[in-house]
């Protein structure tokens, strides 16, 4: 009587692609099931009383003004681009990182200087990004200093003591 296929048979039948990754597949399956239950749960069990006030977008109690999907500050987009640039630079290193420790001394010596050369481009681009103020949210820092003339040091005569009456 055959109760089930043996592990070897199963591995033969399963595409080689899975291998160790079956666990991740199972985990993803469970996660998707839990997510689906969470999303549909109160749609099944909860009351449904629709009214136009209840369904309006929340804007602190006043009537919503306009559409929310408007233009947003360019800074967020800039941060996204910078992330992709810097992240990809590190991603290229991962394969080297995983073998570097156990490689031969000659290979280590050679690739270390390759790595330093590569990272120097990283450092130069990083310094450039910092210098142009690409990730400065504080306007007083990122603006040109000539535009900050109104912030010249306060003269002694400008200062008025507050709360003092003679």
């Amino acid at each position: 009587m055959i109760v089930g296929k043996t592990l070897r048979e199963e591995q033969g039948m399963m595409p080689k692609v899975f291998g160790q990754y079956v666990g991740i597949l199972a985990m993803l399956l469970i996660a998707v099931i839990i997510g689906a239950v969470m999303v549909t749960g109160s749609w099944l069990f909860g009351p449904k009383k629709v009214s136009s006030y209840k369904n309006a977008a929340y804007e602190c109690g006043v009537e919503p003004v306009g559409n929310a999907r408007e233009r947003f500050p360019i800074k967020f987009y800039l941060v996204g681009i910078l992330f992709i640039l810097f992240d990809i630079e590190v991603i290229f290193l991962w394969s080297w990182i995983s073998i570097f420790k156990h490689a031969t001394p000659a290979f280590q010596k050679f690739t270390f200087f390759e790595f330093i050369t590569y990272m120097s481009t990283w450092i130069i681009s990083y310094l450039y990004v910092i210098r142009v103020g690409a990730i400065d949210w504080d306007e007083t820092v990122s603006l040109d200093s000539s535009k900050l003339t109104h912030m010249s040091p306060i003269q002694e005569s400008e200062l008025e003591p507050i709360g003092v009456t003679n």
Partner: peptide, 10 residues
């Protein structure tokens, strides 16, 4: 779990 699910406009 038993609360109303509100699907806002838009």
């Amino acid at each position: 779990f038993f609360k109303e699910e509100i699907l806002p406009k838009g």
